[in-house]
């Protein structure tokens, strides 16, 4: 994934192809290189990466901050789990259904939340997601309550860790590429326009609310798929998947990776999962260490890893007597003062 980011920020198409090929090779070789527990850590990274990239469609590309995206992630996971446990429906069909269910739910919640703008929109998404969390938490007869549903049985071919890895890899990469296509389409351009200036966007004829609603639905739908994949990975779902503490994750990893870069959130997700797993091995005070790292990030590199990467690249290029070219990332990234409300 790190190579994917680099390929995106490097301008020439040839190097992009080479790097994509290298990335694909590494992805194919991972099951041979890693132990099962490490491979499943990568699966976890892929799930969170998809969630973060779909979340960032709202955050980085539309300028809408949602504090309640765990609701859609959780609904996606529960759709897979409930269809399996209540109706014996295969999780594969459940995964498709999770997209449909989250799309429908997010249409209504989006319509409601988008009545407010900016900070109050964020708070409304939080309130709505907590109400959904409570429903899942309390409805013991249907959702299994706070501890949820366990022992989801996957189709036979997914029972081995490498197969599960490839399945999650394909689904998440395909989904991310679809999101990338959306971002690069005229629709994505309109979203960027809304992000920069809602009034101006409305002035040039963009139906702002409608575009925002569609972006919200797309983002939630892919979050739902990510949640569905989580059910594949963990084979259990629990109410905590919808809680606000979970909603913090896509926000955090988007900021860690850099919200103005397409694959930044994916890299942030990988780093976040890695840090969590790594720190927990060495200390029972991992929250302290993680907090300190996040604080450092906020103070020194508010643009996230993407900013770090572009800084490093700029320096490398200068050393190589190259002209400093503005890449996609830098162009899409407004300066701090512009963003100040």
């Amino acid at each position: 994934m790190r190579t994917a980011l680099r390929s995106q920020t490097t301008a020439t198409p040839r190097s992009r192809i080479v790097l994509s090929a290298v990335a694909a090779l590494i992805a194919l070789a991972l099951p041979l290189l890693l132990q099962e527990s490490e491979l499943l850590l990568v699966v976890e990274m892929l799930v969170l990466a998809l969630w973060a990239v779909s979340y960032n469609l709202l955050l980085g590309y539309t300028g809408l901050v949602s504090f309640g995206h765990a609701a859609y992630y959780g609904v996606g996971a529960y759709t897979v789990a409930l269809l399996w446990s209540k109706y014996g429906i295969s999780p594969l069909i459940g995964l498709v259904a999770s997209a449909a269910v989250t799309a429908i739910i997010s249409f209504f919640t989006g319509l409601f939340c988008l009545r407010s703008v900016r900070l109050y929109f964020a708070l409304l998404t939080l309130a709505v997601s907590q109400v959904m969390f409570t429903i899942v938490f309390e409805w013991y007869d249907f959702t299994g309550g706070d501890n949820g549903i366990h022992g989801i049985e996957l189709p036979g071919f997914l029972s081995s860790a490498p197969n599960l890895y490839f399945f999650v890899l394909v689904v998440s990469v395909v989904c991310m590429l679809i999101i990338k296509a959306i971002v690069n389409s005229p629709f994505g351009g309109a979203l960027l326009c809304i992000r920069e200036n809602r009034q101006r966007a409305a002035f040039i004829g963009i139906d702002v609310k409608r575009y925002e609603l569609i972006a919200f639905i797309i983002s939630s739908t892919f979050s739902g798929i990510a949640g569905g994949l989580y059910a594949f990975y963990d084979r259990q779902v629990f109410a905590g998947l919808l809680n606000w503490t979970k909603s913090a994750e896509p926000v955090l990893v988007s900021l860690i990776g850099g919200m103005y870069s397409f694959f930044g959130p994916a890299v942030g997700a990988a780093l976040f999962i890695f840090l969590n797993a790594f720190l927990t091995r060495y200390t029972t005070y991992s929250a302290l260490a993680l907090g300190a790292l996040l604080l450092m990030l906020a103070l020194v590199f508010p643009g996230g890893l993407a900013e770090l990467a572009s800084l490093a690249r700029a320096r490398l290029l200068r050393r190589g007597q190259h002209e400093l070219e503005t890449d996609e990332t830098a162009a899409a990234q407004p300066t701090a003062s512009e963003r100040k409300p």
Binding site: T283, T284, Y285, L288, A289, A292
Partner: peptide
């Protein structure tokens, strides 16, 4: 960070 790791 160092402090936290040490204390841990």
């Amino acid at each position: 960070i160092l402090g936290s790791l040490l204390s841990a």
